[in-house]
Simulated assay, not measured.
Amino acid sequence: IYQFRVPESAKSGTSVGRIVATDRDIGKNAEMFFTIVSGDGMDMFHISTDKDTQDGVISVGKPLQPLDFEKKPSYTVEIQVRNTQVDPRFMSAGSKDMATVRIAVEDVDEPPLFYKASYLMEVKEDAAVGVAVGSVSAMDPDGARSMVKYSIDRRTDMDRLFNVHPGNGSVFLLRTLDREESAWHNISVTATEFNNPRQSSHVPVYIRLLDINDNAPTFATIYETFVCERTKAGQRIQTVSAVDADEPSTGHKFFFSLAPEGTHRSNFTVRDNGVTSIVQQCFHRQTR
Results as ranks from 00 to 15, higher is better:
110 E>W: 00
142 D>R: 03
53 T>F: 08
143 G>Y: 01
188 S>I: 08
226 F>S: 12
65 Q>E: 02
53 T>G: 10
63 P>W: 03
54 Q>C: 06
276 T>P: 00
170 S>L: 05
82 R>N: 08
128 A>W: 01
127 A>H: 00
221 T>F: 08
98 M>R: 10
156 T>K: 04
236 R>T: 12
263 T>Y: 02
246 D>I: 12
252 H>R: 10
148 V>R: 00
242 A>N: 06
216 A>G: 06
126 D>Q: 05
63 P>K: 03
57 V>F: 07
259 A>H: 13
130 G>F: 13
97 D>C: 01
197 P>G: 01
288 R>S: 15
136 V>H: 00
287 T>P: 04
42 M>V: 15
35 T>C: 07
204 P>W: 10
181 E>Q: 12
190 T>R: 14
6 V>Y: 05
243 V>P: 02
277 S>T: 10
79 I>G: 02
279 V>T: 10
94 G>M: 09
158 M>V: 14
73 P>H: 07
235 Q>W: 05
78 E>L: 14
244 D>K: 06
253 K>N: 11
272 D>S: 13
206 Y>H: 15
208 R>M: 10
250 T>R: 04
286 Q>A: 15
176 T>K: 14
111 P>A: 14
139 M>V: 05
194 F>P: 00
129 V>E: 13
135 S>P: 01
113 L>P: 00
101 V>W: 01
251 G>T: 12
61 G>N: 05
146 S>N: 14
141 P>T: 03
173 L>I: 09
22 T>G: 10
39 G>D: 07
114 F>Q: 02
171 V>W: 10
91 M>T: 12
225 T>F: 08
120 L>F: 14
68 D>T: 00
9 S>W: 02
257 S>W: 10
250 T>K: 04
122 E>P: 04
253 K>F: 07
249 S>M: 13
10 A>F: 07
192 T>Q: 01
46 H>P: 00
192 T>I: 06
126 D>L: 11
38 S>A: 15
234 G>L: 04
240 V>L: 11
134 G>F: 13
133 V>W: 05
107 D>P: 01
182 S>T: 09
235 Q>G: 01
182 S>D: 12
54 Q>A: 08
269 T>R: 11
149 K>Y: 13
28 K>Y: 12
172 F>V: 07
221 T>Q: 14
100 T>I: 15
59 S>F: 09
121 M>E: 15
179 R>W: 00
130 G>W: 09
203 V>Y: 05
152 I>V: 15
89 R>K: 14
158 M>R: 14
261 E>V: 13
165 H>E: 14
237 I>H: 02
33 F>I: 02
221 T>P: 00
35 T>N: 09
17 G>Y: 07
244 D>P: 10
111 P>D: 09
188 S>A: 12
97 D>E: 04
107 D>C: 05
189 V>T: 08
214 D>M: 08
179 R>N: 03
177 L>T: 06
198 R>N: 15
76 T>D: 03
62 K>I: 02
276 T>L: 14
